[in-house]
Amino acid sequence: MASEISRQFAAVSDETKASPRRHLPTQFIAGRFGLYILVAIICLAQFFPIIWSLLTSFMTPQETLSIPAALFPSSLNLTNYASVFNSDIGRYYLNSVIVSIVSATITMTLASLASYAFARLKFRLKTLTLVFTLALSFFPPLAQVLPLYSLLNKAHLINTLWALIVPYSVLGLPLAVLILTAFFRDIPGDLEEAAMVDGLTRFKAFYRIILPLSTPGFFTTFIIVFVANWNEFLFALNYTTANTYTLPVGIVEVSQTEFTTNFGVLSAATTLAVVPLVILILLLERRIVSGLTSGAVKG
């Protein structure tokens, strides 16, 4: 695997760096060709369920259950999308977006403060504190659902979106702290020292120097925390009602009945849930990450 990757790497970096020693056209073309074949295979493997969902979303109920499966819809049938739009999926989408963004923002705000301390400050009991922070994630969310419900019910938060925001914000902390600490450690120490010599307070050094420099890492962590919230099922199932369902529960609710599953509606709902999100993440990534890293100091 490693040698294959490095060969592909060779093909492309040779092109960009134009190293004279290896500049053989045939090798270059073969490498390029191999690279694109590899990318095509990977894309097929990564995309096939979503491609299948897209195809199924245009099928009639009979087509979705034909034996053997019809691989392509006979016509561009839009009834599944109409069903999805007529259902409450819009509200579930909104709930998912609100819950995932608000919780991820809270998680990242708290975690970045703590990670700065873990990564760059010296204090007693550091290892113990780090283990305590991580320890919550050893405890399966599965076993937290019932005890946490009583707490949230006493606080009258059940059936509001806070019933999800509160646990998601906290459950994301161990993960976010661990990743952010690793990213913050990657930033050279002298920058910050220099800033403090120039008269910046520690906190200003943190949010003027460290945070901007770790934008790619920060963004990656934010996306990871966001998607974890976006996918969460157990809390979403147990702490919500019709008004506050998020997508993972809502998709089940709109596409199934006691005994039947409408695969067309399921696929349409999934496609609508996933495709815009990926496009959004890619656009944000291009904007935020490449925009900032190009100007940032490296190494």
Partner: peptide, 27 residues
């Protein structure tokens, strides 16, 4: 520096104590 570190850690530790610790201990 140590004081500052604990200041930065307080929000996370509080959040974990308030929400995370009770279910774990009951369990």
């Amino acid at each position: 520096e140590e004081r500052f570190a604990w200041m930065m850690l307080t929000p996370v530790l509080l959040a974990l104590l308030l929400v995370g610790v009770y279910p774990a201990i009951t369990s």
